[in-house]
Design a protein around this nucleic acid. Structure first.
Lengths: 222, 222
DNA sequence: TGGTCCATATTGCCGCAACATTGCGAAACT
DNA sequence: AGTTTCGCAATGTTGCGGCAATATGGACCA
């Protein structure tokens, strides 16, 4: 097993590396967000362990990018910010686990083991469904080669649907994606967006099924 | 999603239940280890949340039994014993997460979500009977490779039947699974659902026997 | 063996809640 | 000011799921 450790305090990093290697866990160590993103490009790591506070920013901000680079990558965040609010923030952002400093090294090992107890990730579905291509980088899309104009809300919704193409997306997940965690929605506005997306997606041979009581599912027209 | 909460402090239990249900998580609540083991027999729950200290013992001791009854059941342990040693002990025993009291309810919700998000868990949890494969992660099923459309009630019933394939499932267990512990049913509606399931399952070489006076049993057609 | 009882099977009906669609007006951007 | 976006609600549509009427079949007893 090879993990990516992103930690800027060198003493702590060294301690962690030697402890982890004593448990037969290989460690690649970098110390900035930028280097972390670069390292993940090769997708060779089974887990990423991020210190939250790094020289070039809060590591929570790059979790989406890490996930985009390697779908399903398990992520553990280490932080001195251990209040429940901080922990929730970390988990909601997509971390699989959040460990407050100070911690005992063996606990980190145990949590890595807990995350690894499951088999590896699912291959990335890609960004093409039917005649639709969706660019995760800038949120643009083309239908059969023709660029399509999408509003902001539509982009947000479509991104989630495309990422999970062929699998159902819970209505609540869509709401979270389109609005914030905070913002609430008090009508069927989401349905309206879906409706308009459907019309725009029709030329791309892509349809959005509704799963009654659950949410929606995007797939190529059969 | 339906979870099993094992907690003997009634005030805390009530608070958790109302918070979880506000997040659309169904909760079945029991207060002893014995009742927990009994509840898991029916294999109805997606996650078990255990208070560590219970009237009839330390809940860590029954984790292996829970796992035996339902392979892959994710388990979260709540405990006032929050030292690193205790946490490690919990994780090593097989808990997927260990949350120290006192905690903010939203953190528990976030951790439940994090556990359910695990893609690997979904891959882990496919069950095959005859030509039927049932995906415990998202409640979808395929018959001989063809995806089948199931209604919500059908999914709930089929999940239990598949989990206990080859063993009889008490009628009462099915009612619990499809409706709540509380909700009652005043007609033969369950039978109707079974009937419709049978028709859908026929192409998958799977049949549902009725065990007169007891319940049902699902198995591959011989 | 034949009859009766009762649990289960099957099917259609239909209310109601979830979802779809569209127009309108307010707000936000240019 | 003009344009676009978006939230909202009114209205239309769909289909789940509860119920009950009727059918089937096994169990038990005489």
């Amino acid at each position: 097993m090879r993990i990516l450790l992103v930690e800027d305090e060198l003493d702590l990093a060294r301690a962690l590396i030697s402890a982890l290697e004593r448990h037969d866990i290989l460690v690649d160590h970098v110390s900035t967000l930028e280097m972390a993103l670069e390292a993940v490009e090769n997708a060779v790591h089974s887990i990423a362990v991020l210190d939250r506070k790094l020289p070039d920013g809060d590591s929570l901000t790059i979790i989406p990018q890490l996930r985009r680079a390697q779908a399903g990558l398990p992520i553990i965040v280490l932080s001195a910010l251990g209040s429940p609010e901080h922990r929730i923030e970390g988990l909601e952002t997509g971390a699989d686990d959040y460990l407050a400093k100070p911690f005992v090294v063996d606990e980190l090992v145990a949590r890595i083991r807990a995350l690894m107890r499951r088999p590896a990730m699912i291959a990335d579905m890609g960004i093409t469904v039917g005649k639709l291509t969706f660019n995760l980088g800038d949120g643009t899309a083309t239908a059969a080669g023709e660029p399509m104009t999408l509003t902001r809300r539509e982009v947000l919704a479509l991104e989630v649907l495309v990422r999970r193409a062929g699998r159902t997306v819970a209505r609540s997940a869509l709401e979270e994606a389109v609005y914030g965690f905070d913002d609430e929605i008090a009508s069927n506005t989401l349905d309206a967006h879906i409706s308009r997306l459907r019309r725009k997606l029709a030329p791309a041979n892509v349809e959005i099924h509704s799963i009654r009581g659950i949410g929606y599912l995007l797939r190529a027209t059969s």
